[in-house]
Structures are given as C-alpha cells and as structure tokens.
C-alpha cells in the first residue's frame, strides 16, 4: 500500500487487490479529538459513505465501485478512478470546456437531489474528471437523505462558496452553468425554489447588507 494523499479526514492509499488497482480510504483517528467522539464520527461516516456512493449510482451519478467496507477499521476499498480533480483543472480550461464541465456538474447534483441525496461536501476537490469527459463524484462521508429545500440549498451554497474561495475569477460564470445543468434535471420551478433558498442562506449568514 502506497500513501497517495492525506486528506482532511482520511488517508488514501493505492493498493493491489487481486491484480486490480484500488483506492484504500482509511479514516484515521484524530489525535485532537476525544476518543469516544472520534470513533463515533469515523464509523458513522465510513458506513454512510459506502451507502451513499452506492445509492448515487442509482441516480446515474458516476461514483467509484465499492469493493469492501471494513467498519471496525473504518476503511473502504474502492475503485481507483484515473483522472484529475476538477480543482486542478477548472481555471485552466478554455471557456467553452469550462462551461460544459460545470453544466455536467450541475446535472449530477440535480440527479443526486432528485433521489433526495444530499452530498454534504461539494467542492471541486471532490469531483474527478475522467477521460476528459466523465465526471465522478467522491467523498460522501457527510452525505445524508433529505427532501428539504433547505438541505439542497445548503449543498449548493457550499459549492458556490468553495468556487468563490478557490476559483474566484470564474466563480460566478461557473455557478450559472451549474444551475443550468441543475435545471435540465430538476426543472425550472424546482431550480428557482432552490436558487431562492441559496440566496436566503447567504443572507442569513453573518453581516449581509440586504435581508430578504
């Protein structure tokens, strides 16, 4: 097993499973956290991630194949998707490509939301561009089920903020494309409701000038 990435909550290793390259995602104990709280969070998220990755597929959202879940060791063995994180390429795509990528991201989120699945941590670090066309969503550790517009709104609000903090030049345009894709899947009415919700969440944040 070779360590390939040290994320915020898990280490990723590249390993060989019966001749197949796999990603081993191990949620490691956090020394800063109380042990009781730590184990509770790690186990819940490991199980939840495996479940939600599987469910996302039912909505035609590309996610890695899960091979094995070790609850006790808070480890998931999954497919190794050979691609690049959207975070690394978004700013370097030409305008047309970027637009198409963002519309596709919007469609994927729309599909998740259509089956009441909230990703919970949508950032460009958690999206992999595969073969220059297909986009995989990963990192479902904070995912959960909800039909609530509020939760869908927060999902998109987090993505919007992540775009503004890491891709500030293209944030606005990208977000517009994402909503176009979202609308293709969810319809104009739903999308408008969610858009309003996103704005409401923003204004609810601290110290916004206008309040609705």
């Amino acid at each position: 097993m070779r360590l390939i990435s040290k994320g915020a909550e898990a280490n990723l290793y590249l390993a060989d499973l019966y001749g197949r390259s796999v990603i081993v995602k191990k949620r490691i104990p956090k020394p800063y956290r109380n042990p009781k709280l730590d184990i509770k969070l790690r186990v819940t998220r490991t199980v939840r991630e495996a479940e939600c990755i599987h469910e996302a597929k039912k909505a035609s959202v590309p996610t890695p194949v899960i091979y094995l879940v070790d609850r006790k060791d808070t480890t998931i063995f999954m497919e190794y998707v050979r691609g690049v994180r959207i975070k690394e390429v978004l700013d370097f795509l030409d305008e047309g490509r970027r637009e198409r990528v963002c519309v596709q991201i919007g469609r994927l989120i729309g599909r998740l939301h259509s089956i009441s699945l909230i990703h919970g941590d949508l950032t460009t670090s958690n999206m992999i561009l595969f073969n220059d066309e297909k986009i995989f969503l990963i990192d479902f550790g904070l995912s959960f089920h909800s039909r609530d517009e509020e939760d869908k709104g927060v999902d998109l609000h987090l993505l919007k903020r992540s775009l503004h903090s890491t891709h500030h030049e293209h944030a606005e345009a990208s977000m517009r494309s994402i909503f176009l894709g979202y609308e293709e899947v969810s319809g104009a009415q739903t999308t408008l409701k969610i858009l309003r919700k996103v704005r409401e969440i923003e204004y609810r944040g601290r110290y916004f000038h206008e309040r609705v």
């Binding site: 915020a8 909550e9 956090k30 956290r33 109380n34 975070k87 670090s125």
Partner: peptide
C-alpha cells in the same frame, strides 16, 4: 472545537 477544527482541517487540505 472539534467541529471548527474539522472544518479548518478541510480548508487547510483544500487550500
């Protein structure tokens, strides 16, 4: 504090 630390760690890893 764990909540804030977790959010911070994500941001640290991301940025």
């Amino acid at each position: 504090f764990s909540m804030l630390t977790e959010a911070t760690e994500r941001a640290l890893a991301h940025t």
